[in-house]
Simulated scan of single mutants.
Amino acid sequence: MFNLETPSKNLTKSKMDSGGVAVGMVVRLMRGVEIAAIAKSAGFDCLYIDLEHCSFSLETVSQISLTATALGVTPLVRVPGINKTEIGRVLETGAQGVIVPHVENRAEAEEIVDASRFPPRGSRSLLATNAHTLFRGGPAAEVMEDMEEATLVVGMIESAIAVENSDDIASVDGMDMLLVGTNDLCNSFGVPGELDHPRVREAYEHVAAVCRARGKHLGVGGLNSRPELAKEMIRLGGRYVSAGSDTGFLMSAATATARLFR
């Protein structure tokens, strides 16, 4: 059987599947491949390239993704929205996972899976010699099977409607994880910035229960400023957590250093 060797294995997915917690670093600022090396040295499991909130080109995404994979750091990409072409191109460039924001219902989840998965579960197009195979050829069925296994599909839960429909969203075959976007969820509830509001906690508990029942992973996002709260959500069953961004890390360290020398 054709087999993708270690560089193309999705280590973050494997870690979550085995019961571990994967820690991600959001990338919005640094366009060079050096960010992948920094993430590796810092101890992150994955990079979360955020195309919803940055101006990166597809070429930048490709270079960072390829470098990260070679270093053993899983490259995940948040696309701006539900767009089949964008999802396909991001995965084709070397991303090992796609994160889609503002998923509200089952129909949208099905559209995401259709764009992310090969037939028969989806309609993703196959280019057999690509970044994931290190540009080696192989039998089409086997290449698609291995690439399927190495792809993580994530839907973001960011509104009251999405929480209400989370069981329908999680029930879609091919959706691997529900990632709660806490800041937008707060906005939806009318409590902006109140990350520990009872309604937010209830939402996490509900989505966590759905994930357990459906055999899907729970992701924790937007709580990097409140690590103690993030840990509470991980105790509910979270298997992925966004721990901060390159912008936040740089500003925090720069501000602290400037203050020290003043």
Rank of each mutant, 00 (worst) to 15 (best):
V207F: 13
V100F: 00
S65Q: 03
P192V: 04
M30A: 08
V143C: 01
G190R: 03
H102P: 00
I157C: 11
M156W: 02
V172G: 13
M30G: 01
S62I: 03
T74A: 06
T182Q: 07
N165C: 09
I157P: 14
V23I: 14
V98W: 01
P119V: 06
E92W: 07
G43R: 08
P192T: 05
E34C: 08
R235L: 12
T247Y: 14
F189G: 06
L152H: 11
V90N: 00
I234D: 12
P227D: 04
R28E: 12
P7F: 14
A128L: 10
F2Q: 08
T129K: 15
A70F: 12
T247S: 11
I234E: 13
D173F: 09
H197L: 09
R31E: 12
D176Y: 05
F56W: 14
A109R: 01
E228G: 06
G244K: 14
P192I: 02
G20D: 12
V241K: 05
M175T: 02
M25I: 03
G138P: 06
V153P: 02
R136K: 15
F118H: 08
S242K: 01
S242G: 15
G237S: 08
E158W: 00
I64M: 11
A131W: 13
L91A: 01
G24A: 14
N130I: 09
G221D: 10
I99H: 07
N183P: 06
L126S: 07
F44Q: 07
T6W: 15
S159T: 15
L229R: 10
E202M: 10
P119N: 08
I64V: 11
M177H: 08
R199E: 04
L47R: 08
A208D: 10
V241D: 02
G248N: 13
S57P: 03
G174L: 05
A254C: 12
L126Y: 11
E108I: 00
T133S: 10
A170E: 05
K9T: 12
T129C: 10
